[in-house]
């Protein structure tokens, strides 16, 4: 049974599963209810989400993209010419 009121400890143990939308409905609701009333835990979740956003969009240098584009084009033309 999932208690409707979670402690901060119980909530942050579920932090990553919550952020990943991997919790079952009742637990997800209980975490959401805690976050709605706890600025500290909400702050942990907000930071976690910001970090995941940064991981997903980490910059790739333009010069690296240009270099790799040229390398890939050469490889593709060689492959295409070989039939």
């Amino acid at each position: 049974m999932i208690h409707s009121r979670l402690s901060c400890g119980e909530t942050v143990r579920a932090l990553w599963d919550y952020v990943d939308h991997a919790l079952p409905g009742p637990m997800r609701d209980a975490v959401a209810a805690h976050l709605a009333t706890c600025d500290n835990c909400a702050g942990h979740v907000a930071f976690a989400q910001r970090m995941l956003g940064a991981i997903a969009t980490a910059p790739v240098e333009d010069q690296d993209v240009a270099r790799l584009a040229e390398r890939v084009r050469v490889a593709l033309r060689t492959e295409a010419a070989a039939g």
Partner: peptide, 28 residues
């Protein structure tokens, strides 16, 4: 426990001001 430790680490960063410092930084 890894989730818990993540939150503990962030809580310490809130206390020492480093979390706020990251607010103004490009994390990339």
């Amino acid at each position: 426990l890894e989730s818990y430790a993540t939150a503990v680490g962030h809580a310490a960063a809130v206390r020492d001001g480093s979390a706020a410092r990251l607010d103004g930084m490009d994390l990339g």
